[in-house]
Design a protein around this nucleic acid. Structure first.
Length: 110
DNA sequence: TACGTGACAAGAG
DNA sequence: TCTCTTGCCACGT
């Protein structure tokens, strides 16, 4: 992978790695932090490309509704949910409970 | 080289 | 308040 030429992806990964344990963030928040809030889809695409990267906790990234829209990209259908629950994040039916509470905004924290 | 796809978000009707 | 449409950009074919 051309890590240097894909600066956008690298930044996405960098932000993901900074997500605190037990917290989650949204694609839009990451996109906004990178200055391209209109390209939240790119963040999703970056996540798709980050599968093999253990350093990137993609399970902590959900859509603005707190829905685990990317769970189908994990091995188990509810692996993503289990990972979050193991971190103390309450997840019900692929939906993060108290999303506002566990939400971590890189724009404010970084 | 060009077109389609993609784990989203926000505005408009 | 809900649903539909548009924007945005990199990657894969």
């Amino acid at each position: 992978m051309k890590q240097d030429t894909t600066g956008f992806f690298q930044r996405v990964y960098e932000v993901c790695r900074k997500i605190p344990y037990g917290r989650v963030t949204s694609y839009g928040a990451i996109a906004q932090y990178l200055g391209t809030k209109s390209s939240a889809r790119m963040v999703g695409w970056a996540m798709n490309a980050s599968h093999g990267l253990e350093d990137v906790p993609a399970h902590r990234v959900v859509n603005r509704n707190g829905l685990l829209s990317g769970k189908h990209h994990f091995e188990g259908t509810n692996l993503m949910q289990q990972l979050l629950e193991s971190e103390g994040v309450e997840v019900t039916d692929s939906q993060v409970q108290d999303f506002k509470v566990v939400f971590w905004d890189p724009n404010l924290e970084l």
